[in-house]
């Protein structure tokens, strides 16, 4: 493995980690709303959350470009207020990966929240726990395996993210060239089979490992509860 390949792998891990950290609170809030909330437009919110799952990734990337580009409304706001720029940056790659991972994470977390027996929360209330304590001592610990499973699944999805990323932040060595983008780039030039093979093996191992961890965590929710995420 060359130094360049190592830096590609490290960049992929860094991008995916940031993507999951960005998405975790948002995904949990959305999962909670969808699992427990009763409000008009819930069906629409559910559909919008799942949109990145079915939309062509290149369309998602293009929409990100419009919104977060230098002249995009969100992009200009973030640049003016916080000096943040996503264009052609690894943070942009993380943003794209986060959007693409969101539906999977929301799905897993929603299942785990729905599998928590609300009658246990009622029991905690009668024993003197207010809503916040009930959430922290009963709901969250019972839902946490599913929440973690969702996070790991989101991480795996982020490692594999390609279409939205290359559309939004292009292919820049050391900045946005993650494993899939490097493999794609290497395939464009003959004679790179060895590099492609090595990166592909790493991608398979990372994805397989993440899926196994995610499934193990889902099993922790216990038989008859939750269920499989995929």
């Amino acid at each position: 493995m060359t130094a360049e390949e190592w830096s590609i792998i490290l960049l992929s891990l860094k991008v995916s980690l940031l993507a999951v950290l960005l998405t975790l609170p948002v995904a949990f809030a959305l999962a909670w709303l969808l699992a427990r909330g009763r409000f008009p437009g819930k069906l629409l919110l559910d559909a919008v959350v799942h949109l990145p799952l079915v939309l062509p990734p290149v369309v998602t990337g293009w929409l990100l470009l419009i919104a977060f580009g230098t002249n995009g409304p969100a992009g200009r706001l973030l640049a003016d207020w916080f000096g943040l720029s996503f264009m052609f940056r690894w943070t942009g790659a993380a943003l794209a990966a986060a959007i693409m991972a969101l539906p999977l994470m929301v799905r897993a977390m929603r299942l785990s929240i729905e599998s928590v027996d609300q009658r246990l929360e009622g029991a905690a209330r009668t024993l003197g726990a207010g809503p916040a304590r009930t959430f922290l001592s009963i709901t969250l610990p019972l839902a946490i395996p599913g929440v973690l499973a969702g996070a790991v699944l989101g991480f795996a999805r982020s490692i594999g993210e390609f279409g939205a990323t290359i559309t939004f932040v292009s292919n820049i060595p050391g900045e946005t060239r993650t494993i899939p983008i490097a493999i794609y780039g290497a395939l464009q030039i003959p004679g790179n089979e060895a590099e492609v093979t090595r990166l592909a093996i790493i991608a398979v191992l990372l994805s397989l490992g993440a899926l196994l961890v995610s499934e193990l965590l889902t099993l922790r929710m216990g038989p008859g509860k939750g269920g499989h995420v995929l």
Partner: peptide, 20 residues
């Protein structure tokens, strides 16, 4: 009054022990 301030000792049909 919310349940946590009623000081009811509630024994449920199914026990409802916290599994964790």
């Amino acid at each position: 009054l919310p349940p946590e301030r009623r000081r009811a000792g509630y024994v449920f049909q199914d026990g409802r022990l916290f599994p964790h």
